[in-house]
């Protein structure tokens, strides 16, 4: 076979871009979570929540990066259930912090 096989529907490419879009959404949500935590001046609990949402964001970026790299082959394997749970877990963690600091 000559050269890399190209998917005519660009499915891996579209999936990569979907991960990027989702990372962007996660960034916005994490920034809003941080803003929420610092509402009414910094407090120990608020700073803890900011650090936690930063960690969640970093975890999501790492997860997306891993999946994007796995998608760069001609016939990518199916996403692992662990990756799916991790992505959902990031959303749940952001929700949990905000419920904890909502006032």
């Amino acid at each position: 076979m000559t050269g890399p096989v190209r998917d005519p529907g660009l499915q891996p490419e579209r999936t990569r871009l979907a991960w990027r879009r989702t990372t962007l959404s996660c960034t916005v949500a994490a920034v809003l979570a941080g803003k929420q935590a610092l509402q009414g001046g910094p407090s120990p609990l608020g700073l803890l929540a900011v650090a936690a949402s930063l960690l969640v964001w970093l975890a999501f970026v790492a997860l997306a990066h891993r999946r994007i790299r796995a998608l760069s082959v001609a016939r990518p394997r199916v996403m692992s259930v662990r990756a799916a749970w991790s992505a959902a877990g990031c959303v749940l963690a952001l929700t949990a912090f905000s419920v904890a600091i909502v006032r």
């Binding site: 979907a18 989702t22 949500a29 809003l32 979570a33 929420q36 509402q39 992505a87 929700t95």
Partner: peptide, 21 residues
Amino acid sequence: TFLAWVRTALALVGGGFAVDQ
């Protein structure tokens, strides 16, 4: 499709923050 649902979830969570802020 899964990622689109995750984005929907993130948008709803962001909306929750927005209402509060």
